Simulated scan of single mutants.
Amino acid sequence: MKLVSLPQGLVVAVLSQLGPKDIGKAAAVSRKLEAAANDESLWETLARRYYGSRVARSTRSMYGSYKDMVRDDNRRGALPTLHGLWKSPCHNNSPTSFYCCLVVCIKWHRPSNMLWLYLDARGESDLRHPGTSALWFRELGTNKNVPLLGARNAFAGTPSNVQQYDFVPDPNAVGRNDRFKGVLQIDASLFSRAGSYEFCYANAILHRDYQECSLFTVDREQDLMDVFTSFSLENESPFASETEAAWNERWRPHLTLAVEAPANRLGPWPERIGMTGDEAASYIRSQNPDLKVSAIPPDVSVKRDHRSGRVRFRVDHRGIVERAPKRG
């Protein structure tokens, strides 16, 4: 059967199995294929396949046609999206002290070329701000990860701040000291190399007391677009209409696992090295309410006498604990 005798709908169905570039090549072969390549139903089929029916339908008004949408890869309205649950807990969680961050969604906002990491962190009243989080890069075939992005207002000695980033809080979580929900906006050009990209919550210093989690891996001969498996709408936030019950349900399995670690009530506390003096003191008091805990600045002298009912430890000029706090 000659191509010219095939129904238009059948030719369109055949072309719909091709990609946009191959469709353009086919259109140059004959008038029949050219007409089918310009059929709007062909591009609507591709748009729904690439971005999902809901996203394609909702963003159609941003373009003159579905053909324009697909050729532009729907950059105006569709966000490449990774759905999952990535966990960055504190290494020293215990039955009396718990800190953890969950990355619940990753979106790529291509018009601004920013990667949006939607974070849900919870802990005690001294929970650190997400603005001190960091990214780490692990080259393929190696076990060593290196700093990719440090904190905006990091302490001296932290990873270089390759590029600043912002944390935009969710309006429903503003005003709380034990919970941070919102989106961390990061320049997507930082994810241009082949390798594994890891996230570490509240990593204000090189000593990482939060565990890093692997967000995704870009293989060789891939780019960032190859990593994302679906698309979503720009105005869709995983926290947009979330109830307190849904939030508690997300955290329920993680809280169950968090209480398994035994509390350290006797000391010393080497795991507090690298924290601020206030953070270390708050943690020690949470496990030992009867102890008198104080951070001593470097230029303050104290009398050397041992008392088991107190903990005194030195902090440097930045307020950071450099040696393990202990009783005495």
Rank of each mutant, 00 (worst) to 15 (best):
residue 222 Q to S: 07
residue 227 V to H: 00
residue 234 E to M: 06
residue 288 N to R: 15
residue 257 L to T: 15
residue 279 E to T: 09
residue 258 A to R: 03
residue 276 T to Q: 00
residue 240 A to P: 11
residue 306 H to G: 00
residue 274 G to E: 08
residue 219 D to A: 14
residue 270 P to T: 03
residue 255 L to N: 13
residue 298 P to H: 12
residue 283 Y to E: 01
residue 264 N to G: 08
residue 247 W to G: 07
residue 276 T to F: 05
residue 280 A to H: 00
residue 272 R to H: 09
residue 302 V to F: 08
residue 227 V to I: 15
residue 227 V to S: 03
residue 215 L to A: 02
residue 296 I to M: 13
residue 235 N to A: 13
residue 277 G to M: 07
residue 279 E to K: 12
residue 231 F to H: 09
residue 297 P to Q: 09
residue 267 G to T: 06
residue 211 Q to E: 14
residue 223 D to A: 03
residue 269 W to Q: 01
residue 291 L to K: 06
residue 236 E to K: 06
residue 295 A to Y: 02
residue 234 E to G: 04
residue 291 L to C: 15
residue 217 T to S: 11
residue 263 A to D: 12
residue 274 G to D: 07
residue 214 S to H: 08
residue 306 H to E: 05
residue 215 L to V: 02
residue 280 A to R: 00
residue 218 V to D: 01
residue 252 R to N: 14
residue 228 F to V: 05
residue 226 D to C: 03
residue 257 L to C: 13
residue 300 V to Q: 08
residue 211 Q to W: 09
residue 289 P to A: 04
residue 282 S to G: 12
residue 249 E to I: 06
residue 216 F to K: 02
residue 278 D to A: 15
residue 220 R to H: 07
residue 259 V to N: 08
residue 290 D to A: 15
residue 245 A to N: 07
residue 255 L to C: 12
residue 243 T to H: 04
residue 250 R to H: 05
residue 282 S to K: 02
residue 293 V to C: 04
residue 280 A to Q: 00
residue 257 L to I: 15
residue 259 V to F: 10
residue 279 E to G: 05
residue 216 F to R: 02
residue 213 C to P: 05
residue 297 P to F: 07
residue 282 S to W: 06
residue 251 W to E: 10
residue 234 E to K: 04
residue 212 E to S: 04
residue 278 D to K: 13
residue 242 E to R: 11
residue 219 D to F: 08
residue 250 R to F: 03
residue 244 E to D: 15
residue 246 A to S: 13
residue 267 G to Y: 10
residue 226 D to L: 01
residue 236 E to Q: 07
residue 297 P to E: 10
residue 304 R to Y: 14
residue 249 E to D: 11
residue 239 F to L: 04
residue 280 A to T: 01
residue 278 D to H: 11
residue 229 T to H: 03
residue 300 V to K: 06
residue 235 N to L: 09
residue 252 R to K: 15
residue 223 D to V: 07
residue 230 S to W: 00
residue 250 R to I: 04
residue 233 L to T: 02
residue 302 V to Y: 09
residue 272 R to L: 13
residue 247 W to T: 10
residue 287 Q to W: 10
residue 255 L to W: 10
residue 280 A to V: 00
residue 292 K to V: 11
residue 242 E to F: 02
residue 283 Y to K: 02
residue 234 E to L: 06
residue 255 L to S: 13
residue 267 G to A: 09
residue 268 P to C: 14
residue 238 P to R: 00
residue 279 E to F: 09
residue 268 P to T: 13
residue 237 S to G: 08
residue 238 P to Q: 00
residue 277 G to S: 07
residue 241 S to Q: 05
residue 230 S to V: 00
residue 211 Q to M: 13
residue 233 L to N: 01
residue 281 A to N: 03
residue 211 Q to S: 14
residue 271 E to N: 08
residue 253 P to Q: 05
residue 255 L to Y: 11
residue 239 F to E: 02
residue 247 W to R: 10
residue 268 P to E: 15
residue 236 E to T: 10
residue 244 E to Q: 11
residue 306 H to T: 02
residue 282 S to N: 06
residue 272 R to E: 06
residue 305 D to V: 11
